[in-house]
Each structure stands twice: as C-alpha cells, then as structure tokens.
Write a protein that binds this DNA or RNA. Sequence first.
DNA 1: CCAATGCAACTGACTAGTTATTTGCTAGCC
DNA 2: GGCTAGCAAATAACTAGTCAGTTGCATTGG
Lengths: 185, 185
Amino acid sequence: MIKNSEKTKARLLEAATAEFAEFGIAGARIDRIAKVAGTNKAMIYAYFGSKDELFDTVFSTHVGSTLERVDFDVGDLAGYAGRLFDWFEDDPGALRLSTWYRLERPTGVGLQAVVLINKVRMERLERAQRDGALPKQFDPIQLLSLIQAIATSWATTNPELGVAATTDRNYRRQTVVDAVQRLLT
Amino acid sequence: MIKNSEKTKARLLEAATAEFAEFGIAGARIDRIAKVAGTNKAMIYAYFGSKDELFDTVFSTHVGSTLERVDFDVGDLAGYAGRLFDWFEDDPGALRLSTWYRLERPTGVGLQAVVLINKVRMERLERAQRDGALPKQFDPIQLLSLIQAIATSWATTNPELGVAATTDRNYRRQTVVDAVQRLLT
DNA sequence: CCAATGCAACTGACTAGTTATTTGCTAGCC
DNA sequence: GGCTAGCAAATAACTAGTCAGTTGCATTGG
C-alpha cells in the first residue's frame, strides 16, 4: 500500500470517467470504479462525497475544461466544426458523458460551465455579424446549435443508419466541414 | 379487479414507455411501472418476459412504428426535416428513448427496424440523384445523417446553450427547415 | 337456466442478490 | 506519537424476478 492522496484521487477520477461514460449515472457501479482504480469504495466517499457528486466532478473536469480548449475562430466556423468532430472522435466518452448528463440530470447545474463558454462564443458571433465579417442568415444561437449538431451528427446517427464503424473518418469529417461551410454561403 | 389481458398489457406498455423515456433502462423501476399501470409486477414478467424485453417492446412499438409514419419526400427534404422536428417536439419521449437505446444498448438489434426504414430512404435519395432531381453535393448517407442531426439539433443542444424552454417553437422549426434547404442549394 | 368445473388473469408476499454508504480498525509517513 | 491515507467488513435499503395461492369469467353438463 502506497499512500498518496493526489494519485489515488486521480486514479479514481479516471476510473469514474470511464465508468460513467459507459454506463451513465444509474448504471455506474461504485464497486467497479474502486476496483479499476485499484483502491476501495470508502475512498470515493472520502474524496468525492457521493456517487452524484463524483459524477459532477467527472463531468466538469472532463467535459467543461476540454470544450474550452477547442479553438473557436469566428472567421472559420467550418474549421471549428471540424475540430469539434475531432474531439468527439478522439474521446467518445466526452460525448457520452454530455448525453448522459442531459438525460439523467435535466436540471443539473454542472452544465453551467458549458453554457458560459457558449455564451462567450455567441457574443463573438454577434460582433462578427455586426462587423460584416460573418453572413447574417442565421442568428448566433442558431449557428452554435447547428454547428454542434452537425459536428456530432455521425456519432449520434451512426447506429440508426447502420453505418459500419469502419466508415472512413476523413469522409465523415469532410461531411461536417462541408455542411457548415454551406450554411454560411 | 377487472380481468382484461389486452387492456392490462396496454396499460403496462404505456406506463413502461413513460418510465423508460424518463429514466432509461438502468434507471427504470419495475415496481413503479406496475404501480402506475395499476397492476402487479408479475404481470410484466408474464407478458413481457424481462425488463430488457419490455424495453425492446416499448422501443419498437413506440419509436420504430412512428418513424415510419413520417412522410419522406425526396423532392422536399427540408419539409421532411420539419416533420421530424415536429415529431420530436410533440413527443419528446421518442427522442429520449432513442438516445437511451444508443447509450445503453450499443449492440442491440431493436434498431433494426429503424435501420431498414433509413435504408429504403437512402435508396430513394440515390435514385433521385441519378435522375437529376436532387443535387449531388452530399451522398444519401450524408444527407440522412445531416438531416436527422439538424432536425434534433435544438432538442440536443438546448441545455448546453442555456436556451429557455420558451424559445419560440416556430423560430426553432424554421431554423431546421432553412438549414436543410441551404444544404441543397 | 344454473351450478360445477377449468383456466387464464391477477395478486401480495417472498427471495436472493445488489447497491450505495458507513464504520472501526490498520498501516504508512512526518 | 499523532495524523492522514487506506482498507475489509458490515449495514440498511433496494431491486429484479418468483411463487403459491386467489379471483373473475366462460364453458359445459344436467
């Protein structure tokens, strides 16, 4: 047994991220998280309080902070969509966590960080439209909504369309970029 | 106690639809379903076999059969998107059920019906493109994926954008229709 | 017409196993 | 030595699934 508060906490958080991404809040099992983290259940309660609080922590550290790191360029929204696509491709857990959150925590406050980021981005879109740097056929809120939906379109509709998981990633990425480009012309 | 196999089954299915839409598979409670249906747990097992099978029945009767009824007009894909939007607005449970399915049943076969419907629609898109009735900038599979994503964009991004639930429905619908229209011009 | 019979629909209580959370104690570290 | 990190085991509540028995209804034989 090695004692290291920080590392144990980190391992728990990592294990919890995987567990919640896979099974959601109701489906996640505290035992499994503890076991994967190579420690025990009581540590979870010592460090995070409860299952729900653990989920909240997982969500804000994993999703909120990552979204912030996706470069947002008002002059190249198609590129932004492409980068969003890349993020969700490289880290499918992030998208799943967001989806679980929406379903299981309809009134949760954990999305607040995400809402804030989007608010800033909307203001930048607004300014770009006023400066004439961005066409005005869609309002900022419409743009963000559409871009987000398009960037995640493959992830959310793959199963329904019977798309093999092997469908070329570049092809899918290009679809996203092209679609957003077309909205703006 | 009134005995009526058909009606009891129907009440159970209705209660189960609401329960699964709200809580997902892992979060749904058999007891709650039975109670809401005004009957007994054992009836669920007599009629549907298990919790999982009950979910499957709920999904295919509620989602599969409804998607089929959304008119698909290759000559008016924007209108199709609008009708999809209407469906999910009028019956938010349908979208939630689909989302739960994707998250909790990654390898389930219940989506088969949906996959089939989409396959037929893709073939119709293909033919329309060959006949020159539909522009070719996107492949059929890209079109279906994008249309589906755009039609549900508000439902899936509302929370992240901090959109009040009161945002005008017509405004949201028009966004969907306009976006799809723009993809095709 | 009507009572006895058969049977499917129904029920409440039960079980066996899980689950989140707590506790009392041990082991490492300054 | 004392404080923090860590643990195994206990607990209390819950959950999917079962079962032995009951109830209403239709059928049938008189």
